[in-house]
Each structure stands twice: as C-alpha cells, then as structure tokens.
C-alpha cells in the first residue's frame, strides 16, 4: 500500500509530496501507519531514498485528545481512529489541516482556537445558571477537543480572524448556560464571530469526533 504525505520541513519552507510503502498490519489506524513508517526501520521513501522522519502529534491515541487531526483521503479526521481497512481506494493520502499554519509536516499551529476564546472572554466567571440546567447537552458540548476538524471542513471558516467556527459556538453556549449575567455579552461576541456568518452547512457535525450537536448549541444561543 502506498502512503502519500504532504510534507513541509519548516513553517516558511515549500510543501512537497513524498510517497512511502506501507506493509504493516491491515487493522492499523493511520496513527499506527505513521508510527510504523517512522520507526519500523530507517526511514526511506518508496524509491529507497533516505529521508527525514515524518512530524505529527499524538497524545492519547484513542480519540479523546484531538492531537492527531489531519486530512486523510480528503476528509478531516483524527488519525488514531481512522482505520486503514475502512478507507476507500488502495492508497492513502495524508495532508496537514489546511486552515492552520504548518509547523512541520502534519503538525499545525492551532493556537488561534484558544486565542479567539481568550480575546472574547469566553469564561464563566461566577457560576449563576438560569433556571433548570440542561446537563446532557452541557456534558456533550464540554467534550469538545479543540482539535480543529470542524473548522477545517467549515465553508465559512477561513483563518479564524473574523469567523471563529463551531468550537467557539459550543463554548459560548457553555458560558451563557452557566452564567446568565454574562449571556448578553456572550450573545454579542457570538453574533459577531459566529451567528451572523454561519451558513448552516452543518458539515462541522459530520466530522466532529465527539459527535457534538453544534446545531443544538446554536439553537439555544439564537433563542436568547
């Protein structure tokens, strides 16, 4: 099986494709494939030319930390829970998330996700819920990994300068649900950075590894 990877040595250098041969286990995940290519032996591309090890990030390796978000066969996904046997076609094509600056190979700088939440003061402050709390939806929304898959797939999200995307909307919901005195302030930044520009393609929900129904957060925020 051929594994085609879009590589980039430095943030400022040009990207280039490199192809590797993978002859490891078929029940492996894409994370397992990257590990196998990197450390099964000295690393060489399909022509036998010695090359550098492929940069990528991981932590939990079981789909709950969001480190290994990348684009696999055109679809944004977590490498650790995308399995070779489930992929269509006989080869695998992997590239870094395109909406974030590349640091090295498949490692991208996703810090804009947290920076946008910081800039807009998305924190609860004092816990003052209004009336009955919806614990189930709060529980689901709080599972957001900040992995960036929803932003990668979103037709409205460009680079996070004005439109902040689904990860932002879910955190806005959490704050307004838990502190009603902040709801108005949150409503304003939500409208400015999400509500006014979201075209409701809902592609964010298709790729979310935590299956967060962002539409439910949006409905609640729009109600206010």
């Amino acid at each position: 099986m051929k594994v085609k990877i879009l590589r980039q040595q430095f943030p400022s250098s040009e990207p280039y494709w490199e192809i590797f041969e993978y002859d490891g286990p078929e029940n492996n995940s894409v994370a397992g494939v990257l590990d196998y290519i990197n450390y099964h032996d000295d690393i060489a591309d399909i022509t036998g030319r010695k090359t550098t090890r492929i940069g990528w990030e991981c932590s939990c390796l079981q789909g709950i930390c969001g480190s290994c978000a990348m684009v696999i066969n055109g679809r944004p996904a977590l490498a650790c829970e995308t399995f070779v046997k489930d992929l269509k076609g006989k080869d695998i094509e992997i590239r870094p998330l395109q909406k974030f600056p590349v640091i090295k190979d498949l490692i991208t700088d996703r810090s804009s996700i947290q920076e946008n939440l910081m800039k807009t003061n998305i924190y609860i402050g004092e816990y003052q819920p209004s009336g009955e709390e919806e614990h189930l939806h709060q529980y689901t929304a709080a599972k957001c990994l900040k992995c960036g898959l929803c932003l990668e797939v979103c037709p409205n999200y460009v680079d996070g300068r004005t439109f902040y995307g689904a990860a932002f909307a879910n955190d806005c919901y959490l704050v307004s649900a838990r502190n009603h005195t902040k709801a108005k302030e949150i409503g304003k930044v939500y409208d400015a950075h999400f509500g006014n520009a979201c075209s409701k393609s809902l592609s964010c929900m298709d790729v979310c590894p935590m299956n967060i129904p962002t539409i439910a957060s949006v409905a609640r925020l729009n109600r206010k």
């Binding site: 990030e57 932590s59 939990c60 079981q62 709950i64 930390c65 480190s67 900040k146 992995c147």
Partner: peptide, 10 residues
C-alpha cells in the same frame, strides 16, 4: 500542548 491534549482528559 494546550490542556486539551493532556493525559488528564483520559
């Protein structure tokens, strides 16, 4: 990494 990547989430 950001805190979302920490082992604590596991």
């Amino acid at each position: 990494f950001p805190s979302e990547r920490s082992q604590s989430v596991m």
